[in-house]
Design a protein around this nucleic acid. Sequence first.
DNA 1: AAGCTGATTTGACAAATGTCAAAACCAGTC
DNA 2: GACTGGTTTTGACATTTGTCAAATCAGCTT
Lengths: 192, 192
Amino acid sequence: MNPLQELRQRYKQLAKNLPHPARQDYEAACQRELLPKGYYLCRQGAICRQVATLESGSARVFHLKGTTEVSTAFLFPGDFVTSFQSFYLQVPSQSAIQLMEESQVTLLSYQTLQKLKATYREIDEIDRLSNDYYTMWLEERIFSLQFHSATERYADLLHNEPHLVQKVPLSYIASYLGITLETLSRIRAKVS
Amino acid sequence: MNPLQELRQRYKQLAKNLPHPARQDYEAACQRELLPKGYYLCRQGAICRQVATLESGSARVFHLKGTTEVSTAFLFPGDFVTSFQSFYLQVPSQSAIQLMEESQVTLLSYQTLQKLKATYREIDEIDRLSNDYYTMWLEERIFSLQFHSATERYADLLHNEPHLVQKVPLSYIASYLGITLETLSRIRAKVS
DNA sequence: AAGCTGATTTGACAAATGTCAAAACCAGTC
DNA sequence: GACTGGTTTTGACATTTGTCAAATCAGCTT
């Protein structure tokens, strides 16, 4: 496994094995909800006040550009879901976050997370590591967007997140790769 | 000013106004050097063991892809310079960092920074904020790469970092924008 | 099985960008 | 002022990707 994936494992392990006092406070502070497909965890232009942990289901982050939506991320069980800039700076979000299926999520507000981080070193550490992971994930994505052709980017995706291609509609994937639906369709025809 | 630039200001302010005890320890721990143009702060494949603060001069981060270099960042006075993944995980770097001119830099090793962060809340805060800034900067860059045409990306750059276009050779800028030198040249001819 | 609806594929053509080679430009040097 | 090496621009043409319209496919409903 590469360093990036190890890091992901590491913070997920830490989150799962949160020791007792921290765990208890965390459980008490967060809010578990079963939300329907299509639910907005954050709307574009609104301040993202919570971070969600996906227990089941899936979500996507996208930006509304005029009339078209451009997807920038897809999230799955175990992932922390939030609009990074909006959440950490508490400023309006540049993108929206929407559930792609009915999902079980655990919600934590900005203020609560701040308190938990200040109280428990372990929670602070998880927050830090997951942010580091996100940063490195972004670096990898830039790599792909900047250096690779559409065909290569699709191959990258297939390689890095094969499950994603099964579950996510092609129109979302196309915008995520920065190409049109038609081009993606042609790439797929060639490959297979 | 947008939230991103405010954040940048904020961590630079904090760094400049580091209170006495922390400042003294920091000064003692770091290493000031005047390094020549072309000097490698980190080579591709090596572990990046230090973070540099640029006092004067400039640097660029690039990736060697076969025979061609693709630039991924340009750094100027006041910026912290390191290979994020390599430094924070202490794993081999995917890219190289080279000085574009003779530069005065302040070097801090990984171990020393860890100690300083553990001892001084202020230094920890600066590290955190500068990482957050970097993350948001990456998000913006992805935005540009994923949504915008070559012409728009050049306009973005001109808008976000106008000084850069004066100081950096066009061949570096072209690869940074993910296009060829010739295409960049044609874009410039059209615009002006 | 027929009909509907949304997702995906295919076709024809246009626009953007890449490739390779040559020309022009520019700063420093003799 | 011409020479030189590196940078930038220009030209001709190839390739990739986008656009718009139509065809096909897949899953549901009746």
